[in-house]
């Protein structure tokens, strides 16, 4: 059962010439593994798959390893995908 849930924040991904947007809301199951959540987002933004191993994936502002870890999400939870930026 899907419901409007995590507002996921694309961190700095628009620099990575990927999604070109900052923030949007996604409906996902309330209980979902971190890897499934990532895959849901990649469905919307396929180019993110290119940098899967080069991002910090954070849920509620906390690092989450992509894998079997089960997340219990609350409406409005923020998911961030943070690639490193290197400019200075």
């Amino acid at each position: 059962m899907c419901q409007p849930l995590a507002s996921y924040w694309l961190g700095h991904t628009h620099h990575v010439k990927l999604a070109g947007l900052r923030c949007e809301t996604l409906s996902v199951p309330r209980e979902i593994t971190s890897l499934q959540l990532w895959e849901e987002i990649v469905k919307v933004h396929p180019r993110l798959a290119l940098i899967r191993d080069q991002v910090v994936f954070a849920v509620r502002q906390e690092y989450v390893l992509l894998g079997d870890q089960l997340l219990v999400l609350q409406p409005g939870d923020e998911v961030a995908i943070i690639p490193p930026i290197s400019g200075g």
Binding site: H15, V16, K17, L18, L50, I51, D53, Q54, V56, P83, P84, I85, S86, G87, G88
Partner: peptide
């Protein structure tokens, strides 16, 4: 360390620098 978070460098053509992205 930096590598703990980013074990592999990003593909070069996904990187934007200040010269072409601005700051």
């Amino acid at each position: 360390c930096y590598r703990c978070l980013f074990p592999e460098p990003p593909p070069p053509d996904t990187v934007t620098n200040c010269a072409d992205g601005g700051v």
